[in-house]
């Protein structure tokens, strides 16, 4: 709803919008700034901006003190693995719900979403025990499964809202040409659905990457991802601000950058198609 406005008003609005945006972004910025300071400079009072002692030492030390590459690799495997597995299960379901809707499809979708409202803490002990017994505890495959199931309702919902916008006539035409069910999915539907699948994938990689409860509860060392890595850094009071900031920056940087590149695709998917 862009409308013509006087230059003065425009300048004022620009200033106001930029101030608000910088204020929201500031905590992240301040964390990054702090991560390049020496520990003494990080806790100096009054706070130091330009006069601070700048250093890369914190990153070097965090890198040396912990096995960052392993945590990073675990995060990558768990978030991408759980998303791909989730897509494999959800794509047929969402396709069927969108193109061959039954009487109960809407209820089924609502039920799926409602499973996400069950507080994770409430079922923490049983899942912990199940994972211990089945040997899934502290394994990447265990976390892939857990996060896949955790995000499955969202994956189905998002795909469903995208698939529903694909015109049914195209499928009927393909059917007339004698295309079988799998051909229909592979050659007709999939190419049209790729943008929707891509943004579903992006959002779920981000959700899985940032998931902290199950990843910390169900791992100790072998399969621990970056959320567990950061939890191990946040204990000491005061003395290690710069290192904590460096570790935090290393934990969020990959997904922050991915998110920035894909924010346009994300926004629509996030609303389950409620906002166009």
């Amino acid at each position: 709803m862009a409308r013509a406005q006087s230059p003065r008003r425009r300048l004022l609005m620009t200033l106001a919008a930029w101030s608000v945006a910088l204020l929201i972004f500031f905590p992240v910025l301040w964390m990054v700034i702090t991560s390049f300071k020496t520990e003494a400079s990080a806790v100096a009072s009054p706070p130091e901006f330009l006069s601070a002692d700048w250093t890369l030492e914190n990153y070097a030390e965090v890198w040396a003190r912990s096995d960052y590459p392993r945590f990073f690799w675990n995060s990558v495997v768990i978030s991408i693995g759980s998303t791909l597995l989730g897509l494999a299960v959800a794509i047929p379901a969402a396709w069927a719900m969108a193109f061959v809707p039954a009487k109960r499809t809407k209820d089924l979708l609502m039920w799926m979403l409602s499973t996400k409202m069950m507080p994770a803490v409430a079922v923490m002990i049983p899942l912990y025990l199940v994972f211990q017994r089945t040997g899934l505890f502290d394994t990447k495959i265990g976390l892939v499964l857990a996060l896949m199931l955790m995000n499955l309702p969202i994956i189905v919902w998002m795909l469903y809202t995208y698939f529903r916008e694909i015109p049914g006539e195209i499928l009927e035409a393909a059917r007339m040409d004698g295309a079988g069910l799998w051909n229909e999915i592979l050659h007709v539907l999939t190419p049209m659905a790729i943008p929707g699948i891509a943004s579903t994938m992006l959002l779920n990689v981000i959700l899985a990457w940032n998931e902290a409860f199950w990843t910390i509860t169900l791992t100790t060392t072998k399969a621990a991802p970056l959320s567990a890595f950061i939890a191990s850094f946040s204990a000491p009071q005061g003395l290690f601000y710069a290192k904590l900031s460096a570790a935090s920056a290393m934990a969020i940087a990959p997904i922050l950058i991915l998110g920035w590149f894909s924010q346009k695709q994300l926004v629509r998917g996030l609303t389950f198609g409620a906002v166009k």
Binding site: V20, I24, F25, N210, A212, L226, I230, I252, W260
Partner: peptide, 9 residues
């Protein structure tokens, strides 16, 4: 700038 906090775990 505004979306950044959403990506912070």
């Amino acid at each position: 700038l505004v979306i950044a906090p959403f990506f912070v775990m």
